[in-house]
Amino acid sequence: MIRRDARIGILFALPWILGFLIFMTYPLIASLISSFTNFSILRPPKGIGVQNYVELFHDEVFYKSLSNTLLYVVGAVPLTTVCAILLALLLNTKVKGMSIYRTLFFLPTLVPMVALGTLFLWVFNGDYGLFKQAFLKVGVTPPGWLTDPTWSKWTLILISMWGCGQAMVIYLAGLQDVPVSLYEAAELDGAKSFAKTIHVTLPMISPVILFNVVMSIIGSLQVFAVPYVMFPGGAPARSAYFYTSYLYDNAFQYQRMGYASAMGWVLFLITLSLTLIALKLSEKHVHYESN
């Protein structure tokens, strides 16, 4: 009976297992092998050892795209985290019609990335853009959001806040799990709202914060669609050229699949390292119920 159940279980799981093997495991292994080859798609791959990796570390565009990406991570991750937590705190209050507010704040995350990029091209338009008009109203000349190399990345970092609704929902779920008794105990000790947030709420949702931060780091390292739409070729002067754009260009524009695969694996190692660092740094600050 147990063996039969196992067989049926495997049968039901088979579509996923096959999908995982064909669409995940095989490409992963193939890309690892490709990263050690000269592979231009139409010609059979030719082994070249670690030459792609060596070239990568001498490639100034690799460093430029990596530094752009890391700066984006440093800007976007804290900004979206703070924004999502603040929104979640607001939407966790007892106000009439709260479900409508929650829906409204979550809705923007459903906008497809390409549409989002096109929308923000208009918002930041140097002539008709909403931002320009708002700045001019208060007597400030706005910077060239889309055209000035010093501002292009910051424009994208600002846009990253648009997607904080996803994290907000997870924070909201975390906030609703904080035991009321802890707030009551804090109130007995004379804690006001701010103190309760700092000493009760944030420690209690710290595992959720860690999860969201790690996911946000991974997502930000892979930022692609919005800059690709808004800043073709990373213009101006590669100031908005990100790692995944360079990887894509190598793979599909320049037909350097081996080189692009090496880039993919380097990105994987960077992501893994940053995730481990985040986990290590969080050890003293994250409180689990089991602790």
Binding site: N125, G126, D127, Y128, G144, L146, T147, D148, P236
Partner: peptide
Amino acid sequence: KEVQSFQSGF
């Protein structure tokens, strides 16, 4: 900067 600002409105 003037050209950048001007062109961003095209």
